[in-house]
Design a protein around this nucleic acid. Structure first.
Lengths: 147, 147
DNA sequence: CTAAGTGCAAACACTTTGCACTTAA
DNA sequence: TTAAGTGCAAAGTGTTTGCACTTAG
């Protein structure tokens, strides 16, 4: 649940208003958290974090805001079998390296991600987004297992 | 819900028994359907199809069987926001070209899929599976929209 | 024979919705 | 001022589970 140093709050407010959405304090807080987080939080994790500053925020509002952000293509919802959805604000093509042991999701900026998008285009597909998950064991867990 | 001409029934029975599972008629039927289908059926679609020949099969059994097949890594469950999960029996690296208009999922065998797996390996990740979704508009829908 | 599997219905967990209250614009 | 948004609780939906019955091995 890390945050990047400066959150572009004015930008968020503008983005919401331009699309006809009101810039409520809840939406701004949730948007700022999600758009600046480097990990892949669940709705519940987001809600708990937001409540540290806005104690009355409901989980329903978190879900509604995440739907707005998904609609604006600022955030992507990653559904998993058995588990809650995680929300990812990195919209550029990238790989999600998902460890099946510790559950961590690491991003990778490898150019193979762009190659996938190009390949889809070559098939006559007009690409608007992507989800490139690789499942397995992360380096940390591999080491832990062998020790 | 297409099927390939010949279903490797004996192979399915062996695979189940080797792993300590009983080869019941329900499991064989469900496995054969899923493992030979070229599209990406949901549990309910599978259940309806199976009931044409085995009218008493329950949705619970379909889900349980799909879990067994997932555990054997013969099938992958693709979860989506808002929608039922689809089940994919193509386990080799490939792209899922998912049309946001008609909902169709087309597979693509492009080598970019293998490049993704290699890239993950380069990062010290031990790959055991992948899900490479590309979202957008398929050629058919693009044409329909422009006409 | 007997432990594993099935089918039904009930339970579950995550997510969405209805509605009265609040608030941005 | 007033339509959009919030927060609560209730409803919804796909999936899982408990349990008595059935069946593969």
């Amino acid at each position: 649940m890390n945050s990047r140093p400066s959150a572009p709050e004015a930008t968020i407010i503008q983005a919401l208003r331009n699309k006809g959405y009101r810039a409520t304090s809840q939406r701004i807080a949730i948007s700022r958290l999600v758009l600046t987080s480097r990990d892949h939080p669940t709705a519940l994790q987001i809600c708990k974090k937001i409540r540290e500053a806005h104690p009355t925020v409901s989980l329903a509002t978190v879900y509604k805001t995440l739907q707005v952000l998904s609609g604006l293509r600022l955030v992507q919802e990653l559904s998993f079998p058995d588990a809650e959805a995680k929300f990812d604000s990195r919209m550029k093509p990238h790989l999600n390296l998902i460890c099946e042991q510790c559950g961590n999701v690491a991003d990778s900026e490898d150019r193979a991600a762009d190659a996938v998008v190009k390949a889809a285009g070559r098939e006559g597909f007009r690409v608007s987004g992507q989800r490139l998950d690789v499942y397995g064991l992360c380096e940390k867990c591999l080491k832990k297992n062998s020790s």
